[in-house]
């Protein structure tokens, strides 16, 4: 039958104790549980690396927010990942200052080094490359973030070192 809803086949993932604990803590900051939607997605992403459909459903059930509302939030913010990402997410700034100082070349360099374009992940799941608009670091452009680390005044050489550093850590 065509009318079997695809989503009925989906089952919510069981939230972990840590996730629940943190979500409960966030709840204390807001008058309505529904207001915690975005924070809960961030918490889930912190532990799972990304927000799967099963995770989204889990948050939806836990906070009693329709999954459609949560999906609206999750897709509006581009730092909520609705697809799996690599262990290290490279956020390369492509806004005005960085663009003037050559971020396009840096992007080309990363792409040729790692073999990934924007939105792609290396085969070993080490790196995902995503563009961001202005990291607020224009005076030290061009810049990028990897995970929570900010890197500034970038050159191709610096990027090689940074990548090598992450590879060494793995």
């Amino acid at each position: 039958m065509t009318n079997i809803i695809a989503s009925t086949a989906l089952k919510a993932r069981q939230l972990t104790e840590e996730e629940i604990h943190e979500i409960e803590h966030e709840k204390t900051h807001y008058p309505y549980a529904q207001a915690v939607g975005l924070e809960a997605l961030k918490i889930v992403q912190k532990y799972q690396g990304w927000v799967s459909d099963e995770s989204l459903l889990a948050v939806s059930e836990y906070l009693d927010i329709p999954p459609d509302d949560l999906e609206g939030v999750a897709t509006f913010f581009n730092m909520i990942f609705r697809r799996p990402v690599g262990k290290n997410v490279i956020l390369l700034c492509d806004s005005v200052a960085c663009w003037m100082l050559g971020c396009d070349d840096l992007k080309a360099h990363i792409t040729s080094t790692l073999g990934i374009d924007y939105g792609e992940t290396t085969e070993d799941d080490m790196f995902t490359l995503i563009p961001v608009p202005c990291l607020g670091d224009c005076d030290k452009a061009p810049s990028m973030m990897v995970g929570r680390e900010l890197y500034r005044n970038l050159t191709n050489e610096k990027i090689d070192q940074i990548i090598a550093g992450y590879k060494a850590k793995a």
Partner: peptide, 12 residues
């Protein structure tokens, strides 16, 4: 209705 909504932003 609860099963419908806007998603993403700008061109998307």
């Amino acid at each position: 209705g609860t099963d419908f909504g806007p998603q993403a932003s700008h061109d998307n």
